[in-house]
Amino acid sequence: MPIIEFTGVQKSYGDLEVLNGIDLSVAEGEVVVLLGPSGSGKSTLLRCVNALEDVSGGTIVVNGRDPHSKATNLNELRSGVGFVFQHFNLYPHMTVAQNIMLAPVRVKKVSKDAARRRAMELLERVGIPEKADSLPTQLSGGQQQRVAIARALAMDPAIMLFDEPTSALDPEMIQEVLEVMVDLAGSGMTMVVVTHEMGFARKVADRVVFMDGGRVVESAAPDEFFASPSTERAQEFLRRVSHI
């Protein structure tokens, strides 16, 4: 039983077809990396999983529930799905600890003390416990993204979604964020990652899904995909991204 299943998912903005019938399933504990050129629909697909975007057609089942059905308690579904944004989106008016504690306290009604203890554990895990009482603006980009990961983990999600988590970072800060993600993948977390970090995809992914023009063009194990992509489009993409 897959933990996420897309069946014929379509999404369009007016005449612009962004997703053109996506069929894809993600098993529990699997790490799936979505690759593809800009505008291929990777981020949109990811955002449809927790209904940050509506779909125009098809169905998605997440943890046995449809995020786009009116009958679904969306807040509850989202509590079980961590989302990490390209631009971190930390709350600038709250400290790092308060950022992490907000959802557990407001949604799960965890006591402030328990939420604070959990926040400290998570900050320990992402390597910056000393920043608990700093404001996000006092942190580097890499540190902010690690806080954002800790914030998503605070709800104990079954699934973590990453939308280009290192794209907004200075090059020397990418590593520290990827290390946290590698650690997370090692712990058995189900992860769907939109990224341009080929090294991460090669090393950590269980499966690489290559998208283009709103379609899944290829889906393969990373060794297989990077060594000999079976489609023309994927071959071309890999040629273009492997500079030199």
Binding site: E76, F83, Y91, L102, R151, M155
Partner: peptide, 26 residues
């Protein structure tokens, strides 16, 4: 920034809670 409301909603906060705790103070 729109991402503020999105981050709060993605964490499971309802619209009004997200507005009150995240968007309105800013």
């Amino acid at each position: 920034p729109r991402g503020q409301l999105e981050a709060a909603r993605a964490g499971g906060l309802g619209y009004w809670t997200a507005m009150r705790a995240v968007v309105l103070p800013q």
